[in-house]
Structure formats: C-alpha cells, structure tokens
Amino acid sequence: MDDAQLVAALRRGEETAFAALVDRWSPAMLRIARTHVATWSAAEDTVQDTWLAVIGGLDGFEGRSSLRTWVFTILVNRARTRGTRDRRTVPWSSLSDGDDPREAGSWVDAARFRGADDPYPDHWTPSGKPVPWAETPEGSALSREAMSVLESALAALPERQQTVVRLRDVHDLTSAEVCELLDISAENQRVLLHRGRSRLRAVLEDLYRSESA
C-alpha cells in the first residue's frame, strides 16, 4: 500500500496494517531512539510511546511528508525529551549499557524468517512448515557464518558508524532521512557510512580469503 492507502487503513483501525507497520519500522526506531537515550529499555519505552502517539495523532496527519518521516519525527522528538529528562535525574555514567538482549548472542537463525521475495518479508515462516534449502548445506553454513561474523563486526563498530550503517543498509532509510533523524550533515553521514562499510568489507574479505585458502 502507498501512504494514502496505509493511512486510510490505519484510520479504519485495521489491526493487520498497524501490526505490519510496527514489525517493519520498530527495529529502526529502536536504533534511532537509542542515540538519544541512555539505555535500551528507555529506547523501547520511547518506541512504545511513539506508536501510541501515532495512533492518537493519525487524524492530524496531513501528508506533507511521508508517513515514515512523520512517525520517525515523532520518535526523535520524544527520544530527545526522554534523554534530556533522564540526564537531569540519573547520571549517565551510572547506567549500564549492557541491557540489550541482542548483545548476548541469542540471535535467531535467519532461515526461520521469510525472504525478501515473500509477500510477508522478514515475518516468521509458518509454524510446522519446513524451510527448504535454497543452497547446499555447505553453502548455507558458510552464509550463516558470514552473517554471524558480519553482525559481530557491525556490533563492534563505533556507535555512530553502527547506527548509520544499520539505518541505511539494514532498515533501508535514505540518506536524507538519516541526516534529518540523527541531525547530522550529509557529509558527516557519508563519512560515517563509508567508514562503517569499509570496516565490514574488510572483515568479509578476511573471512572469504581464509575460506578460499
């Protein structure tokens, strides 16, 4: 659906449309919120508050920007407010940065999700339905190893580089959207993206070089 159709569906209260939107945009929203608040739990609260605000403010959406830009702008405003409030009440140095469950290595096998060519990309595969091999077991094992290495390398990037790379290459935001949402210049965005991608490429080159050897 285009923006007009999606907004109409949301205003009609279609739960499937809203659920699909939440599934698709929340990971990027969480990453953006985390650049403004002290902890992942605070970022999760901010994302939840944003979706509640979106529901309550749909009638006021005039379509002057894309729906995604409108939603993400609400997110940034709330995240900045939350970050300012938290800094006034709790020292950032006293807050743990290790509360992201994704950093504990408990990643789900990518084969359990539908592919990009599926009508519902990135959704879980149907319960009980076998996942067909798209390649040989050896190739699949290497692909999973590469993704694991790549994710580890991505997580090891400096925070600003990691955020820009995730938003551009994982969540498919445009350069203009990233600049606006993170309040950075186009040149700064390009530098961060280039440096992050270069590090990831070097890691993959080392991996495949060792496999070839």
Rank of each mutant, 00 (worst) to 15 (best):
S66Q: 10
G63I: 10
V71S: 11
S41Y: 08
A116D: 11
T73I: 07
E145F: 00
D117P: 00
A134F: 04
T81E: 11
G60K: 08
W40P: 03
W51T: 00
R82T: 09
K129L: 10
D100C: 01
D97Q: 07
V108W: 00
T73M: 01
L75G: 09
L157R: 07
P121E: 06
G105M: 01
R34T: 15
F113K: 01
G83S: 08
A79F: 01
I32S: 05
L75W: 00
G63V: 10
T73Q: 13
E145Y: 07
V131G: 04
W51E: 07
L75P: 08
G83N: 06
V108G: 01
Q48K: 06
E103N: 01
K129N: 07
T136L: 02
D86W: 00
P132D: 13
L95K: 02
G98R: 10
T50S: 12
S66G: 15
V37N: 03
Q48C: 11
P121Y: 02
V37D: 06
R114G: 02
G98P: 01
D109I: 02
S96W: 01
A153Q: 12
M147T: 14
W92M: 04
R112E: 14
K129W: 06
A111W: 04
P158Y: 11
N77F: 03
N77H: 05
A42G: 03
V54H: 05
G139R: 09
R88Q: 06
T125S: 12
P137F: 01
T89P: 04
R31W: 06
R144W: 09
E62D: 15
F61R: 13
V131S: 07
S96D: 15
L75V: 13
R88Y: 02
R144C: 10
V131E: 10
S96H: 05
A155F: 09
F113A: 02
R87V: 04
E103M: 03
T69A: 13
V108D: 05
V71E: 03
D45Y: 00
R68S: 11
I74W: 00
A134D: 15
D117R: 08
P158F: 06
E151V: 10
M147R: 15
P91V: 03
P158I: 09
D122Q: 09
D45T: 06
R102I: 09
R34E: 14
D100K: 01
L67E: 15
A110Q: 11
H123W: 05
R64Q: 14
V90H: 01
W92G: 01
A79Y: 03
W40I: 03
R87I: 02
A104G: 13
S143K: 05
